[in-house]
Computed example of a mutant assay.
Amino acid sequence: MGRKVIVIPHDPSWIEQYETEAARLTAVFQPILVSIHHIGSTAIPSIKAKPIIDILIVVEDVTAVNNLIEPMAQLGYLSKGENGILGRHYFRKGSDEHHTHHIHVYAEGHSEIARHLNFRDYLRQHPEDAAAYSQLKERLAQTHYSDPPMYSSCKSTFIQRIDLKARQ
C-alpha cells in the first residue's frame, strides 16, 4: 500500500509526546548529548502537520552515535545512517508505512542545527507565514497523498524562503 501523506490540525499532545520521548532519548544519548530539541511542524502550535514527532539531537561526536544503534533499536528505532544528509545520523521509529518519530542527530556546530531551529522559531513568531505554510502543506497533502517524496519536494521552495527570512 505504501506511505500516505496525511496532515492534521495541531494536536497539543504532540508536546507531551516530544517530552516523553526526549526523556527516553536523553537516557540513551547522555554520554555524548549536548542538547535536544522538538523541531518540525509538530513543534509549531498553529499549523497542520503529519503526526510525526521530529526531534533534533546535538551530540559531541556524530560518529559515536554508531555505538547507540542497539540501544535505539531497543526503543523501536531503525538507524538509517546519514540518509542523504552529510554529517547526520537519522533514526526512524515505526514501520515503513507508519512512522511516529524521526530523530535527526548532528555534531555540535553542524549548519543544519541552526537551520532547523531558526525555521521553527521563525514560524512560531510569524503567524502569517505559519498559516501560509500550513495551507501549502494541506494542499500538497491532497495533491500528493500517495507520493511522500513529491510532497516533500514541493515544499522546498517555501522552506528555502523561510530559511532566508529566518537568517535575516
Score class of each variant (00 low, 15 high):
M72K: 07
G84F: 04
A64R: 13
G84H: 05
L75K: 06
L75F: 02
L75N: 02
R88F: 01
E70S: 12
G76D: 08
L75Y: 05
H98C: 10
V62D: 09
S79E: 05
A73Q: 13
R92P: 03
H89V: 12
K93R: 14
H101C: 02
R92E: 12
M72G: 07
N66L: 09
N83H: 12
I69G: 01
L78M: 15
N67W: 02
V59G: 00
N67T: 14
Q74M: 14
H98V: 14
S95K: 06
G87T: 07
H102R: 04
H99A: 14
G84M: 08
I69M: 03
Y90K: 04
P71S: 11
V58E: 14
P71N: 14
A64E: 13
E60P: 02
I85E: 08
E60M: 10
G94L: 05
Y90D: 01
I69Q: 09
I85V: 15
N66K: 11
S79G: 10
E82G: 07
V62R: 06
F91R: 01
S95Q: 03
E60K: 15
L86K: 13
G94M: 01
Q74H: 15
G84K: 04
N67M: 10
K93W: 01
G84S: 07
Y90Q: 04
G87P: 03
S95L: 08
R92A: 15
H98F: 11
V65D: 01
E97C: 09
L68D: 08
S79Y: 09
E60N: 14
Y77L: 12
V62M: 09
I69P: 00
Y90M: 12
Y77W: 05
G81F: 09
E82W: 00
T100D: 06
A64T: 11
Q74L: 15
I85A: 12
E70M: 11
N83E: 10
A64N: 11
I69K: 06
L68I: 11
D61N: 15
V58K: 02
H89A: 10
P71F: 13
I85W: 01
Y77G: 05
G76I: 11
N66W: 03
N83Q: 10
I69C: 06
H101D: 06
L68C: 03
H99R: 15
E70G: 11
H102W: 03
D96R: 12
Q74G: 14
D61T: 12
E97T: 11
M72S: 06
F91D: 00
T100V: 04
H98Q: 14
V62Q: 13
T100W: 00
I85N: 02
F91K: 03
S95P: 02
I69N: 01
K80I: 06
